[in-house]
Amino acid sequence: MSMQYISEILPSLFQGAALTLQIFFWTLVGSLPLGILVSLGLTSKIKPLKWILEIYVWLMRGTPLLLQLIFVFYGLPIIGIVFERYDAALVAFILNYAAYFAEIFRGGFQSVDQGQFEAARVLRLSYWQTLRKIIIPQVIKIVIPSIGNEVINLVKDSSLVYVIGLGDLLRAGNVATSRDVTLVPLMLVGLIYLILVGICTLILRQVEKCYAYFK
């Protein structure tokens, strides 16, 4: 393993890692709020809305993310809906992870004592004030471990964007491996993924500490 060779391929790997991080970041930004909204719809008393959202969650969780990526990029143009590669990846990832987060948040909402909603009504808090100031902070405390698992999965799942031709970290490693006939690039790719997962784990632990007062 030559250090000179490593220094030559690292720029392309870092460039791929930058795209991986972009997809990771924007997926979280889009899917977490959407997951909360869908979870509220799943617990809604409006049956048509609840049924539609249940079907959406069933489809997203019941089919592989890889298949969803292919469908969004290659399938939707058949009916006139066309996305650029990067946008198609974000749409597929956000819709997929929002479904998983929705089920996690739904479980969190159902674990909060209903008496707290009644107490909030006595205090004349609106529904949205109750959610924002009382319920959601407790739900976040409950769901952090499950959310953490999905966040770590997202770091690794981002490698699936290679199927629609995006130059992410894994694709950069595969290109270097095929060109130079060596496994060194893939070993470096694995190391970078481990570092990214390690950073996410540390951040999640700090978030857990921030919500520790809800014990």
Rank of each mutant, 00 (worst) to 15 (best):
S44Y: 06
R61A: 08
G108M: 03
A120H: 05
I55W: 14
L95F: 13
L53V: 13
L123Y: 01
P33V: 01
E54G: 13
V122D: 08
I78R: 12
W58V: 12
F25M: 07
F24T: 06
Q68I: 12
V91F: 08
L125T: 08
A88Q: 04
F24I: 02
L76V: 05
V122S: 03
I46A: 13
W58L: 12
L42P: 09
V82K: 13
N96Q: 05
Y74L: 14
A99K: 03
P48H: 05
L125I: 02
L90W: 10
L13K: 08
V82H: 11
S111T: 04
M60I: 03
F101Q: 13
T43P: 14
R121Q: 09
L90S: 10
R85Y: 12
E118Q: 02
S126Y: 03
W26M: 02
P33N: 06
L13N: 10
I46E: 12
L95E: 04
E103N: 05
G75R: 10
E84A: 09
I36K: 05
F83R: 07
L28I: 01
I36S: 06
L123Q: 09
Y100K: 04
L53E: 12
L34C: 01
L13I: 14
R61F: 08
L131D: 07
T20D: 08
G62K: 03
L123I: 02
V82D: 13
I23F: 10
L69G: 05
E84R: 10
Q116H: 05
G80S: 11
I94R: 00
G30V: 00
